[in-house]
Design a binder for these strands. Structure first.
Length: 493
RNA sequence: GGCGGCGUGGCCAAGUGGACUAAGGCGACGGUUUGCAAAACCGUUAUUCAUGGGUUCGAAUCCCAUCGCCGCCUCCA
């Protein structure tokens, strides 16, 4: 049984078969860069990162495109909306482009820490105005769009399949519209492809319809088309974008190209914090930088970025995930357990004896691998996949207590950790620094090593009072000592 | 008003008709180990899946009702 993915378009789990054998084109709606990334971004992009990693694990050649929205968009389709990049720029007294640049860097920095693979292409909306204008022209030529006062709208009544993704019908929405309808529109559900800019609008570009800026659904259609072709295999995004954003993308793209736009629509669910929607006004809005440093009043400590990642993998991407300090704390402990096991295996490899691998162990490993793949094939059940990693941890920990285990056996265990927990889940890395990184680390390491030496002297003299005093001191500042058969190891709490 | 989701042990969370006498993690407790710890290992911690009916040989899983929580419909991952 191959990979099955839940496709929003069909509302069922469909076997994944790319258009071209062995090759996958995947587009994911990226962030609007007007602020630091938060926990919601983490869930979304870690989820899609898992999909990319797993497809590559299965041998697909994946082209992963994720846009950067650096063109602010109106808060609604009517004229009174404000451009959020411009709003943020005014607050910070910077040019919108400087702001976009700053938060783009910040975004990549956070995603790197979460061990998300970089997209192959990160196209900026502002760099694709030409393509977007071309798309609007095509839609006008094909009579799917109309121009009014320098703005261009998509005529939803012309696209019969509008609503097929979100399961809405146009009549229902006509009556239920809560926002004020722009008088320029023929129908309330019509959406802007191009908006005329007022003189004070900073970000604007020349177009056949005058100075303006692209509508907020347009960039994804234009850029996915440019880099992945008219039909793409996978389009991912947050569930809140299912409507209207993705519905509109389908309308624009299929009207322009007369072919199916996306074969598999994948939507991930939202995040809550302490069981409430995360929002700035609720004081439960937590950025990734705050989570990594522990600088938020709802957090009792700092959390390892990979522990945040692990918490995300602990639940399914289509379930809502509640971030709480307790949940993060549990994930941190679990993450450390995996890390410890991997480190022990690697350490023991240095001293293990030569000899063939244990056949029983090899058999167990291949069973774990099968279980892992079956879970991932079932719409990316990372929760079960992660439980397999914990089984592997237990197996590894038992081995490291046995001195007769051979190097070949350890190699097989380590390889499975690297492939499943490393390449696919991304919670195991190749190198673990002794501590969190930073310029003082080497000095800290030397200091701790020195103290360990003095403590061991005291222990040899049976002066346990002195020995314990040293250890207690270190514990107080967050350094944990562990006496093992090979000597005393230490780690940061 | 329209659409959708959820409610599983102290906490997080899989499972969605029969191998469920319900994974896994965290926490807690007991044991092994240790000079004492830490880590690790072994064991214990839900006869029960919001509640009440029903369908079925069989339900956490399907249907109905009730209660509670949440999301989308306006930018948002």
């Amino acid at each position: 049984m191959g990979l099955e993915l839940h496709n929003t378009l069909t509302r069922s789990k469909d076997e994944f078969k790319p258009l071209k054998k062995g090759v996958v084109g995947m587009y994911v709606c990226g962030p609007t860069v007007y602020g630091h990334a938060h926990l919601g971004h983490a869930k979304s992009y870690v989820s899609f990162d898992i999909l990319v990693r797993y497809l590559r694990y299965l041998g697909y050649q994946v082209t992963y495109v994720q846009n950067i929205t650096d063109v602010g968009h109106l808060t609604d389709d009517a004229d009174e909306g404000e451009d959020k990049l411009e709003v943020a720029a005014k607050e910070e007294k910077k040019h919108p482009m400087a702001l976009a640049e700053y938060y783009t860097h910040s975004y990549f920095e956070d995603m790197d820490k979460l061990n998300c693979v970089r997209p192959d292409i990160s196209p900026r909306a502002s760099g694709h105005i030409v393509e977007q204008i071309e798309l609007v022209k095509t839609l006008l030529e094909k009579d799917y769009a109309y121009e009014v006062n320098g703005s261009v709208y998509f005529d939803v009544s012309k696209f019969k399949e509008y609503g097929k993704l979100s399961g809405r019908n146009v009549e229902d929405m006509q009556t239920g519209t809560r926002v004020e309808v722009s008088p320029d529109k023929k129908n309330a559900v019509d959406f802007a492809l191009w908006k005329k800019a007022e003189a004070n609008h900073i970000m604007q570009w020349p177009s056949p319809w005058g100075m303006g800026y692209p509508g907020w659904h347009l960039e994804c259609s234009a850029m996915s088309m440019k880099y992945l072709g008219k039909t793409i295999d996978i389009h991912g995004g947050g569930i809140e974008n299912q409507f209207p954003h993705h519905e509109c993308e389908i309308a624009q793209s299929e009207a322009a190209n007369d072919v199916e736009f996306v074969r598999y629509w994948i939507h991930n669910n939202m995040v809550t914090v302490d069981n409430q929607k995360m929002g700035k006004s609720l004081n439960n809005f937590i950025t990734l930088k705050q989570a990594f440093s522990g600088s938020h009043e709802r957090l009792t400590r700092h959390y390892d970025p990979l522990a945040v990642r692990q918490l995300i993998l602990n639940s399914h991407y289509r379930s809502t995930l509640d971030f709480s300090d307790a949940a993060l704390f549990a994930a941190q402990s679990g993450y450390e357990k995996i890390t410890q096991a991997v480190k022990s295996v690697r350490t023991n490899m240095n001293t293990a004896s030569a000899g063939d691998a244990d056949e029983e162990i090899i058999k167990e490993l291949s069973q774990l691998k099968e279980k892992f793949e079956a879970a991932m094939n079932d719409d990316l059940n990372t929760s079960i996949a992660l439980s397999v990693i914990f089984e592997l941890v237990r197996l590894a920990n038992k081995l490291t207590e046995d001195t007769s285990v051979t190097l070949e056996t350890y190699k097989a265990v380590e390889e499975l950790f690297d492939k499943l927990a490393g390449d696919v889940l991304g919670v195991v890395v190749d190198e673990y620094p002794q501590s969190g990184g930073g310029s003082d680390d080497e000095m800290v390491a030397k200091l701790v090593d020195g103290l360990i030496e003095r403590r061991n002297d005291a222990r040899e003299r049976k002066d346990f009072a002195a020995a314990d005093a040293i250890r207690d001191n270190l514990t107080e500042i967050g350094i944990i000592l562990e006496d093992t058969a090979e000597g005393t190891a230490w780690r940061r709490k």
